[in-house]
Amino acid sequence: MVYARLIAMRLFKAVIVLFMIIVFNFFLIQMAPGDPAAILAGEAGATDQEFLRQLREQFGLDQPLYVQLWRYVSGIATLDFGYSYRQQMPVLDLILARLPATLLLTGTAFVLSLALGIFAGSMAAARVKKVSGSLIMALALVFYATPLFWVALMAVLLFSVYLDWLPAYGMFTVGAHYTGWAHVLDVLNHLILPASTLALFFMAIYTRMTRASMLEASQQDYVKTARAKGLKDRVIQRRHILRNALLPIITLAGLQAGQMVGGAILTETVFAWPGIGRLMYEALMQRDYNLLLGIFFFSAALVIVFNIFTDLVYRLADPRIKGAS
């Protein structure tokens, strides 16, 4: 029951945030340079006046601002994100078509960065006074400071251009028409580079976090008890310290979701990965503001869903936290 109420509360909060984003989007469209009708049409320059007049009428741009706001909000509430005149498709269809690719990329990168980050971080914590421990932390700092899009380009240069091991762009081999397992393998092959470059930055964050969290946990009394019992160091590290150190990492992972979306925009752009990040870049290039704001709204919604999810995982993992938010 506690969970049901909790989820209801979180969903209510999520709806308010999404509503605020819709209102925010509406005012952004008003702020954009040029005629809102032209913007909604996805045309930055001059267009056919008759067409614009029709649009103005269709979107109610001749109405007062609050009526327009109401129409905009109720439109999105009924999942009507408008039409992308540049791509000749409804915005919602465009986004939904691209969503699976983004979920595959960010999901893989998330699991990869979490696993590698926790592994590297616990190694560094166990070797806190040794050179190898410092080396891991130095590497993590370098990855943390590296621009994502640049790593992606350098990875293309090394693994695609010079070594010719992995494909440089796309999600599958064009014209190959693989089916079944061959198709799965083909997609995985294309996934390796984008997912690992996206994972690199987050791996650095999780490594630092795991190490700090483990060092803190290792000061606890139960660790002293375990040591006094004569348990081996390795067992203490894994069973006593790491397990307790993982909790803050779950919270952090939830907070990183927004960053992950940003990272996806950059990696998808470099690797021509057909997800919503790449779609956002295309919308940007074409000054397709309607599509741009639709993707913005969707990415925020994704982040909120993910936050609720991590919140629930956190509560499942640590039964001490009940109800209190």
Partner: peptide, 20 residues
Amino acid sequence: EFFQTIPNFALAIVLVAIMQ
């Protein structure tokens, strides 16, 4: 919190694109 929930980079992109 509202500003923390919105994906940072996506918001920055939208703002710069709209403001030119």
